[in-house]
């Protein structure tokens, strides 16, 4: 796993601090070309991994990368599924079962459809889940996807409900079908790590908010340190700037100094901001290496 990963919230009008800022970003990235050129800026700044939700527009980005292997080389995607809004809206409109039916593969894929029908009849949520994973992974066919993530809304819902074995089902399917590492995004890292271990997902890749403000770190900063000492995990720090609440230099220096953080995920809209954040991480890492 690389030290620096590029995220996608800025492309979809998601900003945890400001709706105005979110709207400005949604306008700025209304054109696909603006998204692709910003990802190219990240690539040119030395970032080789794009961690992105399975939003339908990302499928278009994937298509461009697929068509231009010369330009994009070994650039990797870390898909994060599902794009929850899509399902939430469908459930509101159609109810659970009809919503699931609508997202399962269409009749042409005979095998998948058959499994789906049987899964629905036998009420086997786990078979159904693997079909949904396959549907979400379709846009990434032919691209490098070394890690596949479960989005935090699903991870934390399952964690809250106590459906612990679902994590194992996800991990097994991602490993077997995609030869990829399973990853879990969460806002509740201290609660998740012991549960993952209990179902046999060892040394998991976990992506969670890690920032000096403690923003969306359930249980608090100290609980994160303790949990990672007790349960080894490969942690990706997201929201290192707490959605912009922290000054960048101070925020990056702090997050690079958290020993359990293996990689840092950030999103930015301009080439200058991308380069600046990458430089901050690299120079902070270098200082820490010298100090050690």
């Amino acid at each position: 796993m690389d030290r620096i990963l590029f995220g996608d919230n800025q492309f979809f009008g998601i900003n945890h601090m400001s709706e105005d800022k979110a709207r400005q970003q949604a306008m700025r990235f209304a054109d696909l070309s603006a998204i692709v050129s910003t990802i190219a800026d990240a690539r040119d700044a030395g970032i080789r991994t794009f961690m992105c939700t399975t939003h339908e527009r990302i499928g278009q980005v994937a298509e461009i990368v697929r068509r231009n292997p010369g330009e994009w080389g070994d650039f990797a995607f870390y898909p994060c599924m599902p794009y929850a809004h899509k399902y939430a809206n469908a459930i509101t409109e159609h109810g659970y079962l009809e919503a699931i039916r609508r997202f399962l593969p269409e009749g042409g894929l005979f095998d998948a459809a058959l499994r789906g029908g049987k899964a629905l009849l036998t009420r086997d949520a786990e078979k159904m889940a693997t079909l949904l994973i396959d549907a979400e992974m379709k846009p990434y066919a032919g691209l490098s996807t070394p890690v596949v993530f479960l989005q935090n809304v699903v991870t934390d819902l399952l964690l809250g409900l106590g459906y612990d074995n679902a994590f194992r089902v996800f991990a097994d399917h991602v490993r077997k079908r995609y030869n990829a590492e399973p990853g879990f995004i969460t806002m509740n890292l201290p609660a998740l790590l012991p549960v993952l271990r209990s179902v046999g997902v060892d040394n998991p890749i976990v992506c969670a908010n890690v920032n000096k403000a403690g923003f969306r770190m359930s249980g608090g900063i100290e609980a994160y340190r303790q949990a990672t000492r007790a349960h080894p995990a490969r942690v990706i720090a997201m929201s290192p700037l707490a959605s912009g609440a922290l000054p960048a230099a101070e925020a990056i220096e702090w997050v690079t100094g958290e020993r359990y953080v293996e990689a840092i995920l950030f999103g930015a809209s301009s080439a200058a901001n991308i380069r600046n954040t990458v430089d901050l991480i690299r120079s902070s890492d270098a200082r820490l290496a010298v100090a050690a």
Partner: peptide, 17 residues
């Protein structure tokens, strides 16, 4: 002022503090 500084940690987070 922003939600980031005005929100205490809950014990468990799902969809919003």
């Amino acid at each position: 002022r922003n939600i980031t500084e005005l929100t205490p940690h809950p014990a468990f987070y799902l969809r919003g503090e």
